[in-house]
Computed example of a mutant assay.
Amino acid sequence: MEPQVGNILEGKVTTITKFGAFVALEGGRSGLVHISEIANTYVNDVRDYLQEGQSVRVLVLPAENGKLNLSMKRVQPAPRPAAEARPAAKPAVRAGGPQQPLPPSGDKAFEDKLKHFLSTSEGKMADLHRSMDGKRGGRRRK
């Protein structure tokens, strides 16, 4: 029986490659789940998401050149946008002083990282300028 486009089927991962995974379906057919069709997020390495012998649910996509294409991410629910994922937080207020909102806790960590980055980059730039000063202007005369 030929799998129909749009059907959701169960299969087993038989081979993993750098560009995707081959999945064996019922009836002896197999198809490719391309790396872009594995998850709703960026997939750098297929082995982070799949293992050989793992059972997976796949959606049958239109075939190209007689080769069966499959998708795992189209079977999964769509991810919510970041704005909807986090509930709106009310700003915290300091006790006893003027009513000014506190910065969110993530801002302090970001500022610390930014300060570290700036001090590191300034040090690297100073090293670069020191090494380039000796290489400018040709040879020194005696």
Rank of each mutant, 00 (worst) to 15 (best):
P79W: 02
G53N: 06
P91K: 09
K113R: 10
T120E: 15
L59K: 05
L50I: 03
V58E: 03
L50Q: 01
K135I: 15
P77F: 04
R140F: 15
H116Y: 08
S71W: 03
R80T: 14
V56G: 02
E122S: 13
G97F: 11
E111M: 09
K115T: 09
V60Y: 01
D112I: 12
A83Y: 05
L114T: 10
L50C: 02
V58R: 02
A82D: 06
A92Q: 12
R140V: 15
E52R: 10
P81S: 05
R57A: 07
G53F: 01
A95L: 09
R47V: 00
S71Q: 03
M132G: 01
T120P: 03
G123V: 05
S131K: 09
L59S: 02
P62S: 06
S105C: 04
R57L: 15
G106K: 07
E122C: 11
E122Y: 09
D107S: 06
G53Q: 06
S131P: 00
A89M: 14
K113V: 03
G123Q: 10
Q54L: 06
G66L: 03
P81E: 05
F110M: 08
M125G: 04
L102W: 06
Y49D: 03
G138M: 10
V75N: 00
P62K: 08
A63C: 05
N69G: 04
S119D: 15
D133K: 11
L61T: 01
V46L: 04
P87D: 06
P103M: 08
P101H: 12
K73P: 01
V46K: 03
L118S: 12
G137Y: 05
R86D: 13
V46S: 00
K108S: 09
R80Y: 07
V46F: 02
N65S: 09
S105E: 12
R57P: 00
R130N: 12
V75F: 00
S131D: 11
F117T: 12
G134V: 04
S119T: 15
P79F: 01
G123W: 04
R86I: 12
F117V: 07
H129C: 09
D112A: 13
R141P: 11
H129P: 02
E64P: 00
L50S: 04
V75S: 00
E84H: 05
A83N: 07
G123C: 06
K90L: 15
P98I: 12
T120K: 14
E52F: 02
R47D: 04
S131M: 08
A126M: 13
P104S: 08
L118V: 11
D133V: 08
P81F: 03
P98K: 11
A95E: 12
G97E: 13
P87F: 07
Q51T: 09
V60E: 01
R136F: 14
R130Y: 07
